[in-house]
Design a protein around this nucleic acid. Structure first.
Lengths: 195, 195, 195, 195
DNA sequence: CATGAATGAGGCTTCATTCAT
DNA sequence: CATGAATGAAGCCTCATTCAT
């Protein structure tokens, strides 16, 4: 599948818009085709089936998402700053693309387990980025050495994800970016009064 | 609707099993009726429609879930112990009811926005329980006084939810209960080395 | 079937009201039972099935309708006056019972062919009354002797029926009774200028 | 909706046959599709829903019915001959298309009020044709000048309709066409002996 | 006689996918 | 490559009727 063909991208962009506007279940292939300006059948020249469109949407968008995050993090000097940068990038990229936020936080979660598994595979590189920060922090003495990698990763991702989902469900009425530093604080210092 | 009617509970229990076994979208009303040992039409004497079954499943199960959590927490003396108890109860209740865990963590998330909103309303009391612990901790000096209530709630719930979902998706291959104390540690002390 | 039992009549009257209010297809047996103040099952002690209720409604009401018409006509001296009386009675009885008019002119016509045949059997005595008037008129020289009995009966009944149906469909906005004399005129003198 | 598409007409013709054969309520969309030789879903490319098929059947058939009637009437020189032509056309068209007669006289009357209203709108042009004849007859002195237009229209239509319905219900055992001249006689001269 | 909880058959419609052009 | 007309499988819900009490 030649992903450089313009129609491929037209369809991807149309899919994001259609899903964000109409919701997952009301996003018929014919609607995506119409918005993309192609015939229904043309979709099947570029995608195996409807699920493939959705996975591809997530792949394309998350690919850029992760890439940008990695580039930004590379420039930071220590794990703590990298973690803050990750949080900021996470919030900033979804805040600046509300349609995509709706799709990733709400609509794509309505998919069936088979699709969910594929989506998780796409997410894996992102989790590896998180893991890298944690490991680096444990090595350079920023974070505690006895951290359970999986649990920390789940705490970080779970917190970011829940925060963004809440923001989307509250119709994005408040500024997500402003939460970044507080979330970073919480994750690094925890709830307790420091002694 | 008299919820003490045996058929009502038969249908609720059957629904949990059918959804866990077949997945949300393959859970036809007729399948639930068959498993419950009643006629299809009988379902509609106790539930308004299919969605009402699903909401009721969540209401019944989460109602018990929250009630047990509240009862356990009451007996604890301070916010820190209450938080640990909440985490333990959260993990324990889902670990001891794998079918329900599949339903709440995976299947019910595939539902449409209307159902999602109702599910969120059912969850609200649980979030209030979490809020209560945080507030108590801030008052009695266990937790920092400058915590952002919403963010902390999102961190706690997001972490627990993500942890359970991962456990379910990994086919429950490891012991969820054993994670409770580490998760509590992480949430209260954060990632950083304490000084 | 003891038709003197009060419940029998309660159900008949309830059926007329329910059909007139809700229409034929929305007239569930349970609705009729509720309005009659009896249990659903009780209906089946007095009627064989739902169709039997409807036929009985028509039988009871048309029985009275025809009886009153016959009594009034008997007192008239010639065929012409009898025809006028028939028209007046037809219009008057339906005009004074709007619920019944809705049921007979609109709702009962939605029934299936089997029921339609039974309804036609109930109507037969009325057609015989009409036939009697025509025959009498032909014998006593009021009406032409070469009239085709069936056609005349169809003209008379068709005209009355269509007139009442139009009146019901126009929401009974005009006075039906006032039309009686004109209709009688039309039927007896026809359209042409008399020579 | 391009009504010249062959499938559109296939479906219309199939619907007439299926309704006439099976009756209104037993006329499932799938039966019509099968008889038309198309897939169930194809129906919905040409019709909005099942009701739309029925309305369209009536529109198409009554459209032709009225058109032919108008064309025949135009060639007649006076109101009296036009009325006779109308009656003949009414009988002839239904007599030559027994399936359609069953559909229009019996089956379509079982429809719900919403559909009945649409059917009445389709009939309106026919009533206007009748009105035209009456008005012309009153102007040219063929008919009495004091006729009540609505009542006359109801007498004519009611008589024709009742006559055809009776003929259909009697299983078309006699010749409908032969009645035309007698019906015309009746309508124009009435019942009374002319003086 | 009376109840009313339980039954279960039956159909319209949507929409992902195909394939002849 | 591109089209878009055609396909056909699949499920929620209603409501007349029964029968154990």
């Amino acid at each position: 599948m030649n992903k450089r063909k313009p129609k491929y991208n037209q369809i991807i962009e149309a899919a994001v818009e259609v899903i964000a506007e109409n919701g997952y279940h009301a996003s018929q292939v014919s609607k995506i085709a119409k918005k993309a300006g192609v015939a229904d059948g043309t979709i099947y020249l570029y995608f195996k089936n409807k699920e493939d469109i959705l996975v591809s949407v997530f792949e394309e968008k998350m690919g850029q998402f992760i890439e940008k995050t990695e580039m930004t993090i590379e420039q930071k000097e220590n794990a703590n700053e990298k973690l803050l940068a990750l949080i900021e990038m996470h919030f900033q990229q979804l805040a600046s693309n509300p349609l995509l936020a709706v799709v990733t936080q709400l609509e794509l979660r309505q998919s069936n387990p088979a699709l969910r598994i594929k989506i998780n595979q796409v997410l894996k590189p992102y989790l590896i980025v998180i893991d890298g920060i944690i490991k680096e922090g444990m090595q350079d003495g920023t974070f505690r050495k006895d951290l359970n990698l999986r649990l920390v990763r789940q705490m970080i991702f779970g917190t970011l994800d829940e925060t963004v989902t809440n923001w989307v469900m509250k119709d994005r009425k408040y500024n997500l970016m402003e939460q970044a530093s507080d979330v970073h604080q919480l994750l690094t210092n925890g709830l307790k009064v420091s002694k």
